[in-house]
Design a protein around this nucleic acid. Structure first.
Length: 431
DNA sequence: TCTGGGGTCCTAGGACCC
DNA sequence: TCTGGGGTCCTAGGACCC
């Protein structure tokens, strides 16, 4: 059957319902049918089962309030390893239908099934529903699914009929559905843009696509908004990002420390801890970074940071910490309270693509790499932070203390207790 | 709820060069 | 000399997403 006028392209969006809470229920049958929330590790709700939603709980709610409002609720610390395993299964299942799958986030993916109707002798609707059924049977989780001619419309569609809904949005239905879609709910138009549009009298997504291109230009809207405007009309202008293109461009680790601090060494050690974590991530991805930025966030929520280029590409902390130490005073000021720090490793390249620099800095750092590989192994086996740098010690000691306090108050299940710990206090110092 | 953590992409405007 | 015009490259910051 020819569906090419309804779907010049056929894009499907899959969105796991209440993903984290659903994974918990899928893993442990005793949690099914019960009000479950995740986020116990940070004291506020990140995901809720539908039973918890029915009791009046909602996202971002503090745990103490949740317990008061619905005492029967089961609070869990997020198990991100499990969530990412489920995510990988989701991608793998979608890929049994087509290789054109974008791994968009931990609980969502897009598939471009254009042309599969001809090759399979089924309609696009039948194919989308077949994928949905396979996902739900294999994972034990329901999905919101949308089929449309563009990514943005597929997102609009998958949001409807929650949970476990399927919505087909061919070109003929665009007007009807967009009249029922608030401008705030459109993917790609955030607070700033939708408020601007509201101010210009645009209330629904349909109002938006009625405006001519010249109107967008006149009011200073830029490319991302124009792309969204095209996509909503059924003209796909956002490609799927697939495969090699999906390698990360940057890796970031940021952490708030409580209480805030003015202590120079303590704040540097926070940064050091972030650098260690970021390097571990980069190594896991088989990449190296040749640029970075780091910042401190004050108690007033202002940011102070710098960007740096490195002489070579690294995946281990020493050179990176050396660079940060050199520029630390450009960012840190005496007598100011800081609440968070962060580091971003940028200009990431595959390990084999690294060109050693002329001054031998790369070769020198290579000698130390073996140490960090061993550290990865130990930490995988015995738990995070079994081995860490001396420069990170202050940060870890304090966060450990506050963690134990939370455990003893019952805010967090003490799953990491009882892990073996090695008697190796630190690896050396990065000064 | 006084505001977590990890990403991507786009653009204005400065630096630098004819 | 006080006076241009034009192009490219890069960075900082904004906006958005989950």
């Amino acid at each position: 059957m020819d569906q090419s006028s309804s779907y010049p392209r056929a894009i499907v969006h899959f969105d796991g319902d209440s993903f984290f809470a659903s994974v918990e229920q899928a893993k442990d049958y005793r949690l099914r049918g019960k009000p479950v929330v995740t986020g116990g590790e940070r004291g506020s709700v990140t995901s809720l089962s539908k039973e918890a939603k029915m009791l009046g709980a909602h996202r971002g709610m503090p745990m103490q309030e949740i317990r008061r409002v619905c005492p029967s609720v089961i609070v869990l610390a997020g198990d991100y390893t499990a969530y990412s395993i489920y995510a990988k299964r989701m991608y793998a299942i979608a890929k049994t239908f087509t290789t054109n799958v974008e791994e968009y986030s931990i609980d969502e993916c897009f598939a471009d099934i254009t042309g599969l109707n001809e090759s399979r002798g089924q309609t696009y609707e039948e194919i989308a529903e077949a994928i949905k059924e396979k996902l739900e049977l294999s994972l034990g989780i329901t999905f919101g699914v949308g089929l449309a001619p563009s990514k943005t419309l597929a997102k609009v569609a998958s949001k409807r009929n929650k949970p476990a809904g399927f919505t087909a949005l061919p070109k003929e239905r665009i007007e009807e559905v967009l009249k029922d879609t608030e401008i705030y709910d459109v993917w790609g138009l955030g607070g700033a843009h939708s408020a601007h549009l509201r101010g210009l009298g645009v209330v629904t997504a349909f109002d938006f696509i009625q405006k001519p291109a010249a109107w967008l230009k006149e009011h200073g809207f830029t490319k991302p908004v124009r792309d969204t405007w095209l996509e909503l009309q059924g003209y796909p202008s956002l490609g799927l990002s697939i495969g090699a293109h999906a390698k990360p461009q940057s890796v970031m680790v940021t952490r708030t420390f409580t209480p805030p601090s003015m202590d120079r060494e303590y704040i540097f050690s926070q940064l050091s801890k972030n650098v260690e974590a970021a390097c571990a991530k980069v190594r896991r991805a088989g990449l190296k970074a040749s640029a970075l930025s780091f910042y401190l966030k004050t108690q007033e929520f202002t940011y102070h940071g710098v960007q740096l280029d490195l002489l070579a590409a690294y995946d281990a902390p020493p050179e990176i910490l050396k660079a940060i130490r050199k520029h630390f005073n450009e960012v840190y000021a005496e007598g100011i309270l800081y609440r968070a720090s962060g580091v971003t490793l940028r200009c990431l390249r595959g390990e084999n693509a690294v060109t050693p620099d002329l001054f031998g800095a790369y070769a020198e750092s290579q000698e130390k790499v073996g140490v960090f590989r061993a550290q990865d192994l130990v930490n995988r086996r015995y738990g995070r932070n079994t081995i860490y740098l001396g420069s990170s010690m202050q940060a870890l000691v304090r966060s450990e203390a506050s963690y134990r306090k939370k455990v003893s108050k019952g805010f967090v299940s003490a799953s990491t207790d009882g892990k073996k710990s090695l008697d190796i206090p630190y690896l050396g110092t990065a000064h």
